[in-house]
Amino acid sequence: MSNKILLLEDDLLFGESIVDVLEEEGFGVVLCRNGQSALDETYKNQFDLYLLDINVPLIDGLSLLKELRRANDLTPTIYLTSHNEIEKLSQAFEIGADDYLKKPFNIDELIVRIHALLRRTKGKSRDCVGTLCIDELHKCILMGDKELELSLKEYQLMGLLIRNAGEIVTKEMIMDTLWSPSEMISDGAIRVYINRLKQEIGSDMIVNIRGVGYRLVS
């Protein structure tokens, strides 16, 4: 199966030229011309790589990646920046960018960087507790060979438990991961998601630490 790339570029002609070249290289590419449509696509599709412009309509490229990283989306990301955006790159790397190319760039260099980044990240994207694994690259939870059918928040919560397996995941950690600070969240809402995960993986794997939080055991 070919690697799937999300390209955020508001210059239609330039974006389509990149799409043509990448598709010739065997990649599947989805072109978005504003940050909101790009964000929507991440909910509908699983991507192997993001190529992001910074100055785009609705949601800029930096805010988009910040939102994705907050949602535990660790998909490898390359920024395609203009010269006057170089000063923003330190912010981009703090957010979680992996690489960048300054416009105008050589398309062959972009292809080399894409392949290099995919090689580096392949195999580093999966954490497992027994047969239960989170695939960060494809944003899914696997139990053996079966992919669990989870909502975004269920995926985020399951990932938090897996990455902290054997340790207590407090209710505060769960709230910080699943909801923004402005949202009002009850313990009941957390229990709903915990019970949903127990239905998927077995109730004996998630232990309730009364009044504190939860712990995933193998």
Rank of each mutant, 00 (worst) to 15 (best):
G123F: 11
H83W: 09
Y155H: 10
L148Q: 08
S90I: 09
R119I: 06
Y193W: 09
T81S: 11
L89N: 04
L178E: 00
D135W: 06
G188L: 08
Y155N: 08
G202N: 07
K122M: 12
A92C: 05
M175E: 13
N195Q: 13
L39E: 02
D73H: 08
S125V: 07
L197T: 11
M173E: 11
L117G: 01
L22S: 01
R113M: 08
G159Q: 12
E16A: 01
Q156E: 15
D99C: 03
E183N: 05
S218D: 12
K4Q: 06
I86H: 01
V56K: 03
I59R: 11
V29N: 00
V169K: 10
E200C: 11
S218Y: 07
N3Q: 12
G96H: 01
A189L: 13
V112M: 10
I190D: 04
L101I: 06
S180I: 12
I162T: 06
T170Y: 06
R69D: 09
T177K: 13
V21E: 08
E87D: 14
Y214M: 10
L80V: 10
D145V: 10
L178Q: 02
D187W: 03
L39W: 01
M158A: 14
D187F: 07
L152H: 11
L49C: 03
N45G: 03
A116K: 10
Q91S: 14
I111M: 06
L160G: 13
Y79K: 06
E24S: 02
S63G: 10
F105C: 06
C32E: 05
E67M: 15
I86N: 06
L110W: 02
E87Q: 14
H115F: 12
I107V: 15
C140E: 15
T81E: 04
V129G: 09
H115N: 15
Q46L: 11
A97E: 03
A92W: 03
L132D: 06
